[in-house]
């Protein structure tokens, strides 16, 4: 029976967490189907301990393509390597992260392979009887959940929302086969990456953050937005913002949460002075816990919040910061 594959993401020789999340999800699928689980990593180099991490996270096979043309990522280099690999091994399922990488590569690859692709899934299952992959995803701003399948095409392909599943526990006693994949550079690659300008003053992107502290128009002016930034740094969190806050220049666009910004799934989302317009809520429907700090009891955000403090943010947020610091000191 054909294998289940996941596509790992590598940056600077190190795996991104999504690579392991995918293996955690796919392990259950492979076990249900009684087939092997393989992870494909295409990169300029992958550190040895990272290969072991893939194995410990559930991979039975690792297809490792190491070549300087594979990093930084370009669609044509990665798609041509994968097309050759798929033609050779015919997997039944391919999963990648719903990241800028997976959401670029997979729809391109799906067309090249004449296959279906489901976007940004938050859950997967194997259909009893048929063995088809059931792909569950939010759509229309998170207002509906759709179950999608590709009954007549193989491989079945899906991108998976980051942080929609916990990291698998590592088992370093697992055995795993590493297959080195020969890479033939594309004859003509029309894209060439010149460099990266990393985000300043921010450790991680808001998609990867466990805690996001977000501010909205309720902050009233740019200077006050520091309340949000300070609380975030106190919590080791990232800063999010409503569109109104971004449009006023209080935060930059990469921090915007919502329909025309980012969709995120942090463990904790703290919305400060954000009303919770449906376009904003679209970005946080899969957050584990939502806290609202707002002086309007009837604000929209209350419909989706798990915990709310109704009151003046200009009093609450400084007190919160103060109490946090006090508690840290006594610990």
């Amino acid at each position: 029976m054909a294998d289940v594959w996941t596509i790992a993401e590598v940056s600077g020789g190190v795996l991104k967490e999504i690579s392991l999340e995918l293996l955690g999800r796919a392990r259950t699928l492979a076990d249900t189907l009684g087939v092997r689980l393989a992870s494909v990593a295409l990169t300029s180099h992958l550190n040895e301990d990272q290969v072991e991490r893939l194995a410990a996270s559930g991979a039975d096979v690792i297809y490792l393509g190491q070549d300087s043309t594979l990093e930084p990522f370009t669609v044509s280099a990665h798609a041509s390597a994968l097309m050759a690999l798929v033609a050779e091994h015919s997997p039944q399922i391919i999963l990648a992260g719903a990241t800028t990488y997976g959401r670029t590569l997979l729809p391109y690859l799906a067309v090249k392979l004449s296959c279906g692709l489901t976007a940004d899934c938050t859950d997967l299952a194997i259909e009893e009887g048929s063995g088809n992959l059931l792909q569950i995803r939010p759509a229309i701003g998170g207002n509906i959940m759709a179950t999608i399948k590709s009954p007549n095409h193989r491989p079945q392909m899906a991108t998976i929302r980051p942080r929609s599943t916990p990291l698998p526990s590592l088992d370093y006693s697992r055995t795993c086969t590493v297959c080195h994949v020969p890479i033939t550079a594309a004859v003509h690659n029309p894209t060439h990456v010149l460099g990266l300008r990393p985000f300043v003053g921010q450790q991680r992107s808001i998609e990867d953050a466990e805690i996001v502290v977000a501010g909205g128009k309720g902050l009233k002016k740019r200077d006050n937005f520091a309340l949000v930034e300070d609380l975030a740094s106190l919590l080791g969190a990232e800063v999010g913002a409503s569109r109104d806050a971004v449009d006023r220049g209080w935060a930059t666009y990469p921090h915007q949460v919502g329909l025309s910004g980012k969709t995120i799934s942090p463990e904790l989302y703290i919305a400060i002075g954000i009303s919770g317009a449906i376009q904003h809520l679209a970005g946080i429907k899969t957050a584990k816990r939502i806290v609202a700090i707002n002086n309007d009891r009837d604000a929209n955000i209350m419909a989706i919040a798990d915990y709310a403090i109704i009151g003046d943010l200009f009093a609450i947020v400084p007190l919160l910061a103060k109490r946090l610091q006090e508690r840290r000191k006594t610990q």
């Binding site: 059931l134 509906i144 759709a146 403090i309 109704i310």
Partner: peptide, 22 residues
């Protein structure tokens, strides 16, 4: 079309918030 939407559900988004009036 290779994909088929086989089921549509409206998830219950409303969570019951623990509300504190400050």
């Amino acid at each position: 079309s290779p994909t088929r939407v086989v089921k549509i559900e409206s998830p219950k988004v409303a969570r019951t918030a623990e509300v504190h009036i400050a």
